[in-house]
């Protein structure tokens, strides 16, 4: 008994540590669904984070409108010149501006898509610098299922709008869902090069770049090749646009051909995403 009393605190600490380690071990595996506690906590906090996100957008909007006022005078003169220019090439310029707009991408995607898409807003990002995960404001109530592919509208070529891959849903609550993005270290995706149909696997890294290797060392790949998901393994939907090859490294000793990919979607500025549902 004396022993118990003397080391009471240390024993409690070790006890908690062991329980936590067991929980980590249990939950690190692939799980079929989330536990009740997670569901309740997520459901309670999701509207809160949603509210703060809304407030943040308002506040940033307020400050940017203030700074806009200060810039107004110099901007005015610039704009006058701009208008003259615009009037002469009005139609062409509006056309180009509209095309580069994100909303245009979204609209065009909605027109041309063959999938059933549900729109969601990003309401929170995972704290910390190790992973790239975020939470969206739609969940099981909207028909989202675990493993669904998350996309965004991107312009693949001129006037050709398609789904650009963002990541996949890894956990679903009633009104929220966790999404792991493609640049996360843990996600790997099987791709194919659309020009030659060569396949390979790519994954994110800690420094938020997409790197991959080709199955075939002799494979024909050039900078600018477009990559699509191959659907192998059934993790991601087939034929979703990933991005372009920007760098090719061949290592003779290891007999591997690695590539660096520029993803089509801008992962730094994710506000609205689409989830593919069946």
């Amino acid at each position: 008994m004396y022993f118990l009393r003397k080391y009471k605190e240390r024993m409690i600490v070790i006890f908690i540590a062991i329980i936590l380690l067991i929980v980590i071990g249990q939950t690190s595996k692939e799980r079929l669904s989330i536990t009740g506690i997670e569901r309740v906590t997520g459901n309670l906090l999701s509207p809160l984070t949603n509210g703060v996100t809304f407030a943040r957008e308002k506040v940033t909007g307020f400050f940017s409108s203030i700074s806009d006022t200060f810039d107004a005078k110099s901007e005015n003169e610039l704009l006058r010149d701009e208008i003259k220019k615009l009037e002469s090439e009005n139609l062409d310029l509006i056309n180009i501006i509209g095309k580069t707009d994100y909303l245009r991408n979204e609209l065009e995607l909605a027109k041309s898509t063959e999938y059933n898409l549900i729109k969601g807003q990003v309401i929170g990002k995972e704290p910390g610098n190790w992973f790239d995960r975020f939470v969206i404001d739609i969940g099981a109530d909207d028909g989202i299922v675990k493993g669904a592919t998350v996309v965004q509208g991107v312009e693949v070529e001129q006037n050709l709008y398609q789904e650009g891959i963002i990541g996949k849903v890894v956990d679903v609550g009633d009104n929220w869902a966790k999404v792991t993005s493609l640049i996360d270290e843990l996600s790997s995706v099987s791709f194919k090069i659309i020009r030659t149909q060569d396949g390979g696997v790519l994954s994110g890294s800690v420094d938020s770049m997409l790197e991959g290797y080709l199955f075939d060392f002799e494979a024909d790949v050039i900078v600018g090749d477009k990559l699509y998901t191959s659907g192998l393994g059934g993790v991601y939907k087939k034929d979703v646009y990933i991005g372009e090859v920007t760098e090719i490294n061949t290592s003779q000793e290891e007999l591997t051909k690695t590539i660096v990919i520029k993803p089509a979607a801008d992962f730094k500025k994710l506000y609205n995403v689409f989830v593919i549902v069946n």
């Binding site: 908690i16 936590l20 980590i24 506690i37 997670e38 704290p127 939470v135």
Partner: peptide
């Protein structure tokens, strides 16, 4: 530390307990 860590884990990560464990210590 335990409370804050577990809250963070439940909300954002797949593996429950990592943040809880570290912040606890």
């Amino acid at each position: 530390g335990l409370l804050a860590g577990l809250l963070q884990d439940v909300l954002f990560s797949l593996t429950i307990g990592v943040n809880g464990f570290i912040l606890f210590f």
